[in-house]
Amino acid sequence: MDKSEYIRQVLSRLPTLLEREKRAVEEELAAHFEDRMEPLLALHVSEAEAERRCAEAMGDPVEIGDALAKQYQSFFWVVLKDILTGFLVFFLIGAVIRFSLTTDFFGSVAARVNPTAGDREATALAVAVDWRMTVGNDTVRLYEAQVRQGVFTGYLCVYDRMPGGVTVDLKKYLWAENQRGTRKGVSSPAVGWNYGAQYYKIHLPVDPEDDHVTLCCRLYGEETRMTIPLEEVRG
């Protein structure tokens, strides 16, 4: 095998290299041939024989070419990788900004996991319960309640079905009814709301013989009702 054929076979394994990179490889291999052949030519070995011996000493050109190819990344993939990285960074920054400006992700999660953490004035007498109803895209959750001295007190939170989703204030649309049809709306506590979840409390008079109250919500022309048994929350 002569020098030209050897270098051609090496370069044939490097189709994705830029032209200037291929020229650099070609020049370096040609220089190696030149240096290796010099002492042989000085010993009056023919040029063809010197090239053949040099090619043998260099090793399999296909293997050399494949090994070189592993060291180079195609320019196309380098540019594509840079573009995709840029898009990903832009998207992540946008997502973080969107989250921080419009949602309280942790508030939304807390309402699901531990609503008392996101809440309001403390009450040691309330009983932990878990009654939920779906209103549009939101979940209304009664998480604590008690009946004392003829008054039902309930603690509610509202959160979007999607964690991190924004929820609106349902104060005007929520109420509770007793068995005589008396209605009472909800009030917002002094602390405990954020875009991720809304917190309310409700006070409703009940008679000793009452066995339930009804939590109601009217939104977008639809009324949703949930019956709350009083047996487990009577003090």
């Binding site: 090496v10 490889v25 370096e28 291999l29 190696h32 290796r36 000493a57 260099m58 090793g59 399999d60 050109p61 293997e63 050399i64 090994a67 070189l68 592993k70 060291q71």
Partner: peptide, 8 residues
Amino acid sequence: MKEGTLYP
């Protein structure tokens, strides 16, 4: 070594 393997 096979001299060509130096370049990769």
